[in-house]
Write a protein that binds this DNA or RNA. Structure first.
Lengths: 229, 229
DNA sequence: ATCTGTCTACTTGTACACAAGTTGCTTTAT
DNA sequence: ATAAAGCAACTTGTGTACAAGTAGACAGAT
């Protein structure tokens, strides 16, 4: 699997390299414990070390690799780590939803509605890349609504990683058939209804359930990648 | 105020530059909206652009500046942003404390006890730098105990920033007299007692109170920096 | 006076060069 | 055979050079 070109428009070489390596780490092509050298990667991508350094720093700040004296060592993203990533996503969205004023809900729900429409369209067009992107947009839109600088920065620090995980899981969901795709869309509709209701307790319940469900889906679609090691 | 040399031992030029600029931003010497150019900073610190690029990337990942096409623009850290930083600290510690097994509490509390002793010592020696460092260590030790890779990475992404804020507020606390210092230590003792109790509800209550108190302290010690602009 | 085009100075992105330090192997001495 | 010393091939950190692109000022035309 390759990283979608469309997601790299206008990006620097460094960002491109980071995205490629990130995908390799998440998909398991590169395994935990592997060592990455700047020269090696530069040779692989046919660039100088400068963009590679930028990429490694990015991946390090995302917690995917650890920069050491000699070489960067891959931390990786096994089932446990993905679960932990979803812990944080839940923390963020739970916090954010508790902060969204009832006032904003109206305008917000219109935007979210349109994103869900785009997800449906992408589903019909069998376009997992676009689908994953809209899925990400849905959650990002909600998070942005809180207008909380630190939460937003926190989201930015895991955004690319979440995007990559979504890309992989969405590919699998699409491969498993139409009803799985529809189920994902339905989950977002349930979230949206919660926001529309304006009832804080109801919202929290639905967010909680969304991520519980997601975790189950994850356990179902990711682990077999681990087992064939 | 200058960044403590002791906190930069073994650090690269890039980290040093980042720490210096970070302090300037947090203390208000550099203000939101200001533009930083790589060449300018390189000239100021007498280095080449390479370490400066590293520093700017670091500060960007901490959310203190925003990298744009031309120049990096300072986002800054006003009272509102510091409050939001404490929101995130509360989110982290609240989550972490809920995950610490009663088993671990014993060994953990011994370590925390020793850190509090060091805080007392630093208080008697009138050494705010050491005091702030131990304060940071206290919280970091608790967070590490959860052994949660994503939460840990989240902490790492704000660690330097928290350290810098602590440095400044601790200087002020020390300037205000002994009893203020003792009050800070007492707050940590209360947290520790919560952990020792092993009662989840009690722990959550004390964590909540700790950060509520901290926010009040913050409002008291930071805002006047804003007003004299 | 206003609009337009060009030009200059500055910006970042990338490549490359060099220095200092680390790792691990080879060779030599016992 | 084994241990120690030295060497060779790597590593990263930093400095420098160049290319492409942008912003703003200035001059000229309408």
């Amino acid at each position: 699997m390759n990283y979608p070109e469309a997601w790299l428009r206008g990006a620097s070489l460094g960002e491109g390299i980071a995205s490629n390596i990130r995908l390799k780490i998440v998909s398991g092509t590169i395994q935990p414990g592997d060592k990455l050298s700047e020269n090696g990667i530069a040779a692989e991508f046919g660039t100088s070390r400068s963009p590679v350094r930028e990429a490694l720093k990015t991946l390090s700040s995302e917690g995917l690799i650890r920069l050491e004296r000699m070489g960067a060592v891959v931390i990786g993203l096994g089932p446990k780590e993905v679960g932990e990533l979803y812990d944080v996503r839940y923390l963020i969205e739970s916090f954010v939803q508790s902060r969204i004023a009832a006032l904003d809900a109206k305008a917000l729900s219109v935007v979210l509605e349109r994103i869900i429409d785009k997800m449906e369209l992408a589903g019909r067009h069998r376009d997992p890349v676009e689908f994953a992107f809209q899925d990400l947009s849905f959650h990002e839109t909600i998070i942005a609504e809180a207008k909380h600088s630190r939460i937003w920065q926190l989201w930015r620090s895991i955004r690319q990683l979440v995007m990559t995980v979504m890309l992989i899981t969405t590919e699998e969901v699409f491969a498993e058939g139409e009803e799985r795709v529809e189920a994902v869309i339905e989950k977002h509709r349930i979230l949206l209804q919660g926001i529309r209701s304006g009832d804080p307790e109801e919202v929290q319940k639905r967010v909680r359930r969304y991520f519980d469900d997601s975790y189950v889906t994850l356990r179902h679609s990711l682990p077999h990648r681990e087992e064939d090691r």
